[in-house]
């Protein structure tokens, strides 16, 4: 619990740092896209969230992302209900956070690479784990676009899956993201 509080505090500190630096280097989106996909032989489960907030400081490479768990929509109402009530307990833990830093920023700025390596902490429920994400980074008109996917181990985040549906839900779910960051005015 305290660990979670720290990580959330850390998140807001990152967020405010990001907002304090030079305006021309800040980029953000309030309509970022995050989805997750669980594949098992029994069934595939997919959920989308089009309301993700992401703030990027291209001067320092710091990035802060937050989203509401309830904003994930599923094809089946029952899955959405189980997800919110039993697995992520979204009344108790309404938001997920990621705060991190692009570690190869110079190479990106020089145009040497098109893949950003982001080291950071992912917080879901009351658990925080260091996470490394590789993301395609492209510059389209005025925007900075981050797009990629990574795997999340369900058990790492204190999500308990009852035995009866264990075969229906993958141990690792694939998380995809697509953020079109616009300059912050």
């Amino acid at each position: 619990m305290t660990k979670m509080k720290y990580s959330i505090l850390f998140f807001w500190v990152t967020l405010s740092c990001v907002f304090q630096t030079q305006a021309q280097d800040q980029y953000f989106t309030r309509q970022g896209y995050v989805s997750f996909f669980s594949h098992t032989p029994v069934e595939d489960i997919k959920a989308d969230n089009n309301q993700v907030l992401s703030i990027l400081d291209f001067e320092t490479g710091e990035i802060a992302i937050t989203m509401l768990m309830k904003s994930f929509t599923f094809e089946k109402a029952l899955m959405q209900e189980h997800f919110n009530e039993n697995y992520v307990e979204s009344d108790k833990y309404p938001k997920a956070f990621f705060s991190g830093k692009i570690t190869n920023l110079d190479a990106i700025k020089n145009g040497d690479v098109a893949v950003a390596i982001i080291h950071g902490d992912l917080t879901i429920k009351d658990a925080t784990h260091p996470t490394v994400i590789e993301s395609r980074i492209t510059f389209e008109q005025e925007t900075i676009v981050l797009r990629g996917k990574f795997m999340v181990t369900v058990a790492d985040y204190n999500i308990r899956i009852p035995a009866i549906v264990r075969r229906n839900i993958a141990r690792e779910v694939e998380v995809s993201f697509h953020f079109i960051h616009e300059p912050y005015q």
Binding site: R30, Q51, L53, M67, L68, K70, S71, T73, P94, K95
Partner: peptide
């Protein structure tokens, strides 16, 4: 209504 970040969120 699903909550609030910088904005109030509605789904469906």
């Amino acid at each position: 209504c699903t909550g609030f970040l910088m904005d109030v969120m509605l789904v469906r």
